[in-house]
Simulated assay, not measured.
Amino acid sequence: MSLLERLEIKHPFFLAPMAGVSTPALAAEVSNQGGLGSLGLGASSITAARGQILATQALTDAPFQVNFFCHDSQKLDREITAQWLDYLAPQFERFNVSVPAELECIYPSFLDNDDFLNLVLETRPKAVSFHFGIPNAHQITTLKAAGILTMVSATNLPEAQAIEAAGIDMIIAQGIEAGGHRGIFNQHIDSAIKTSDLVQLLSKKCDIPVIAAGGIMTGVQARQMLQLGAQAVQLGTAFVQCKSSNANAAYRKALFNSPITQITDSISGRPARGLINQWHTEIDLPLRPAVPAYPYTYDLAKQLHAAASQQGEHGYGAYWAGSNVAQIRELEAADLINQLALELSQTQ
């Protein structure tokens, strides 16, 4: 059985599960048009996640995936945190706001307990994907027993081999071009492999299906990835501009007017690719101190962005985007899927 048959979808296009940007409406539009819609639920509470899943199921009978974070929860290093708060204090003072005294762990991990697992079992989406790591063995076994397909992001070969050995159904091969956070969990090194090279490598070394992710904006690029061994492709940046996404006006404008990206860990505590703004030009200076662990750093970044935005300064937003964002097109989700399918068929 082919991957598309297993997923019960028409086109080999996955919507990337972008936490904070994905919406039930966007997921349903992609799924209704024959792709695999998605919900990025890693930043959501159980209640909010359930609400998004049920809202999506009310909008489509077609399959979609849900996504959770599998990061290793870490304790906050007080010394590093104090240095980071002191370093960013002048940025807060610009907007007449005091730097926070404490940072919170704003995002839970799927690994911490089985609350999200039970939600998936309750709501039964077609597939569930994971970022920043692999679920616990009993979680994987439970999902497979329930007939729910599983996917995990890999950024290098050792991660992919660990994913396959764990019994996961599919690998998301996420190259360096990808916008936002790549799913790095082999913390010893960031391999920084191009998507095309990663797809070729994993397709040769792994037996489970590989989905290409990172820098894919057109059907022509999708066809190239399929020819290299991918069985589907995942796109995120291309869909951020859709009216049904949760991106704010400043984010949408920047996608078209400032389409140059750079990777930073200053925003969240993990390396992530986004549109160049104040984080890259004013904060990532040569003498910048180390950042606190993810997601504590993200807590501070969100507070700074909120304070700045209230005074009309939008340069502290986390405007995640892939390296090929300059190729973005102003199309709604259904039209974008149709255009991708047309371009894919014309390049065969």
Rank of each mutant, 00 (worst) to 15 (best):
Y107Q: 02
A89N: 10
A82Y: 10
Q57F: 00
D72P: 00
I53L: 03
D86G: 13
L76G: 00
F69R: 09
N67G: 11
Q83I: 10
D61Y: 04
L103K: 11
S45Y: 03
F69K: 10
G51E: 10
Q52G: 13
A62G: 12
L54E: 13
G34W: 00
L41F: 03
E104N: 15
L111F: 02
L76V: 06
S31C: 10
F92D: 00
F95T: 02
A55M: 02
Q91C: 08
S45M: 01
A82E: 12
Y87A: 04
N67F: 10
S45G: 11
S38E: 04
I46N: 09
N32P: 15
P90M: 10
A82P: 15
C105V: 13
P108Q: 01
P90L: 12
S109V: 06
R50P: 06
E102L: 12
S98R: 13
V99A: 10
Q83D: 14
D61L: 02
P100A: 09
Q52K: 11
A48Y: 07
R50F: 00
G42W: 08
D86V: 08
E93R: 08
D72V: 02
A82W: 09
V97T: 14
L111W: 00
D61V: 01
R78M: 15
L41I: 09
I46V: 12
S38Q: 08
F69I: 13
Y107H: 06
D77Y: 02
V66R: 03
S98L: 14
P90R: 03
D86S: 14
S38N: 07
A62K: 15
P90E: 03
G35T: 05
S109H: 07
Q83L: 12
I106Y: 14
D72C: 00
A101G: 08
A55T: 06
S109W: 06
I80G: 04
Y107S: 01
R78F: 10
G40E: 02
Q33S: 15
A48K: 11
R94H: 04
Y107V: 07
Q74F: 01
L111E: 00
K75W: 04
E93C: 07
L59C: 07
A43F: 11
E102V: 15
F64V: 05
N32W: 00
A58G: 13
V99F: 13
C70G: 01
G51I: 04
Q91N: 02
S44Q: 11
C70V: 07
S31D: 05
L76T: 03
S98K: 14
F69A: 07
A55Q: 06
P108Y: 03
F69W: 15
E93H: 06
N96E: 14
A43C: 10
A58S: 12
I53M: 06
Q83W: 07
I80W: 08
A43R: 09
T47M: 00
P90F: 08
T47I: 03
F68V: 10
V97F: 09
R50W: 00
A58T: 09
Q33G: 13
P100N: 11
A82K: 11
A101R: 13
G40A: 06
A43I: 13
E104H: 15
R78Y: 08
H71M: 01
S98I: 09
F95E: 05
F92P: 05
L36N: 00
G42N: 06
Q52S: 14
F92E: 04
I80M: 11
Q33W: 02
N32Y: 03
F68L: 11
Q57D: 04
S31T: 12
A49I: 02
Y107L: 07
A62Q: 15
L54A: 14
